Amino acid sequence: MICERNELRGILANYTNKDLNNRAMLYHRLNFELEMFKMEHNQMISELQKLPMEISDALDNCKGLIEETESISYLHDQVLRDWTQMKKNVHVLRLKNRLLWKEQIELQDSCEDLKSLLKEAHEMICEPSADQQLVA
């Protein structure tokens, strides 16, 4: 009986040591995981505290982009108005150019007609006097 008692004590002691070792390992593992969760928690809190500032910066950037877009839109409208006015001016100038070409052609024709008339008049005036000089 003493032998069996000692054997049971040995088994119990061994079981208790294993249980204590398992509990110690479990405690260390749980402690490590708790520390990891604490670090993650602190990091999340830190990021959450930065979030309002990041939102404010993003809002400022959006306002700046809106102002820039409005400015560009205004300039685009101005350029479009100027371009439209220039198109109208070019159209008017082309019409004037056509009229001037027609007028130039008419003037050239008139000049040619006038030259012919002057030549005829010159011949009429100058030839009889040349004939009179020959006769004389």
Results as ranks from 00 to 15, higher is better:
Lys87Gly: 02
Leu107Trp: 03
Asn97Thr: 12
Ala130Phe: 12
Met86Thr: 13
Leu95Pro: 00
Glu54Asn: 09
Glu103Gly: 01
Ala58His: 09
Leu65Thr: 15
Glu112Met: 03
Ala130Pro: 01
Ala130Cys: 04
Ile72Met: 08
Lys115Thr: 07
Ile125Asn: 11
Glu70Phe: 01
Asn61Pro: 00
His91Arg: 12
Gln132Lys: 13
Val135Leu: 15
Glu106Ile: 01
Asp57Asn: 08
Glu120Ile: 06
Lys102Pro: 01
Asn97Tyr: 13
Lys87Ala: 05
Leu114Trp: 05
Lys63Glu: 14
Gln104Pro: 00
Asp82Pro: 01
Met86Cys: 07
Arg94Glu: 12
Leu51Ile: 03
Lys119Gln: 10
Ile55Thr: 11
Trp101Gln: 05
Gly64Ile: 05
Leu59Asn: 11
Trp83Gly: 01
Thr84Cys: 01
Asp113Trp: 07
Lys119Phe: 04
Lys63Cys: 04
Lys115Glu: 14
Ser56Thr: 09
Asp57Pro: 00
Glu112His: 02
Lys102Glu: 12
Asp113Phe: 03
Leu114Arg: 15
Asp77Ala: 08
Lys115Arg: 08
Thr69Arg: 02
Leu100Thr: 02
Arg94Trp: 03
Ile55Leu: 15
Asp82His: 10
Ser73Asn: 05
Asp131Lys: 15
Leu114Lys: 14
Ser129Gln: 11
Ala121Lys: 12
Leu59Thr: 14
Lys96Thr: 04
Cys111Phe: 06
Ile66Met: 09
Cys111Arg: 13
Val79Leu: 14
Asp60Cys: 06
Cys126Ser: 15
Cys126Asp: 15
Leu95Val: 15
Arg81Gln: 14
Leu95Gly: 04
Glu127Lys: 13
Gln133Thr: 10
Cys111Trp: 03
Lys96Phe: 05
His91Pro: 02
Leu114Phe: 03
Trp101Leu: 13
Leu75Phe: 05
Arg81Ile: 08
Leu100Ala: 06
Gln78Phe: 11
Leu100Gly: 02
Lys87Pro: 01
Pro128Gly: 00
Ala136Arg: 10
Leu59Trp: 03
Ile105Pro: 00
Ala121Thr: 13
Asp82Cys: 07
Asp109Gly: 01
Glu127Ile: 13
Trp83Ile: 04
Pro52Gly: 09
Leu114Glu: 05
Lys119Ala: 05
Lys102Met: 11
Glu67Leu: 15
Ser116Ala: 14
His76Pro: 00
Glu120Met: 06
Pro52Phe: 03
Lys102Gln: 11
Glu103Arg: 12
Trp83Met: 08
His91Trp: 07
Ser73Arg: 13
His122Cys: 02
Glu112Asn: 13
Glu106Lys: 05
Asp60Glu: 06
Leu107Gln: 05
Met124Trp: 09
Met124Tyr: 15
Arg98Glu: 09
Val79Asp: 15
Glu68Arg: 06
Glu67Ile: 09
Ile72Arg: 07
Glu120Val: 04
Ala121Phe: 02
Leu118Asp: 01
Leu117Ser: 09
Asn61Leu: 12
Asp131Thr: 07
Pro52Ala: 06
Met53Tyr: 04
Glu127Ala: 11
